[in-house]
């Protein structure tokens, strides 16, 4: 291990001359620590300035979030019309739904947000749904789902054919099967 004298020898006469062991100036001997404290202080000040610049002013107004976010969200245009509004016009669909389990499903859960359609039914028309995709969102077989929930492995059950080829989405249980079962009883 090298001692202090060897190190000073490596550093050269200039350094040893300026900061030799005989120098009793305490300030010189803690100069590097003062510089370190200055660097830390600069970093802290920079952090405080950065924080003041980037943290929104309304942060923490009500809780651990941006208070102004509430007003911004409230001012957004309404996207969903609500099933009561849909049912005011589409009474035929309501009648169909009442006969099946989908009566509890809101219209826009499958058809998407349609407030614009309500505002202007003539020019804004909902897109036709691909039932092979939409139905699978709920009815694709999954071991995590309750056993009594209707579910199928779509690849085996329909092979990609649209579900509404056989099922009526608003009243999905196939009536003929129901009649046959009831007949056997």
């Amino acid at each position: 291990m090298l001692g202090i004298k060897e190190h000073c020898a490596i550093l050269g006469a200039d350094v040893t001359g300026r900061y030799g062991a005989g120098n009793a100036n305490l300030f010189k001997d803690i100069e590097h620590l003062i510089r370190l404290v200055a660097v830390i202080a600069i970093a802290l000040v920079a952090f405080v300035i950065l924080r003041a610049a980037v943290v929104p002013h309304s942060f923490g107004q009500y809780g651990h979030y941006r208070g102004a976010a509430i007003g911004e969200i409230a001012s957004r245009p309404v996207a969903f019309a609500g099933h009561d509004t849909c049912e005011a016009c589409h009474t035929d669909v309501v009648d169909q739904k009442k006969l099946g389990k989908h009566v509890v499903i809101a219209c826009e859960a499958c058809h998407g947000a349609l407030a614009k359609h309500v505002d202007d039914p003539g020019s804004v028309q909902p897109k036709k749904l691909d039932t092979a995709i939409v139905c699978a969102r709920c009815h694709e077989a999954n071991s995590a789902k309750p056993k009594n929930f209707p579910q199928v492995a779509t690849a085996d059950h329909s092979g990609g054919i649209a579900c509404d080829t056989c099922h009526q989405p608003h009243r999905p249980k196939i009536e003929t099967a129901k009649t046959e079962t009831e007949g056997k009883k």
Binding site: I4, H7, C8, V15, Y19, A21, D29, H32, R35
Partner: peptide, 15 residues
């Protein structure tokens, strides 16, 4: 990394 200080006196190293 030296932060501009080249002081390696015995006392500074002791500190």
């Amino acid at each position: 990394l030296t932060l501009g200080s080249r002081n390696v006196s015995e006392r500074s190293l002791g500190i």
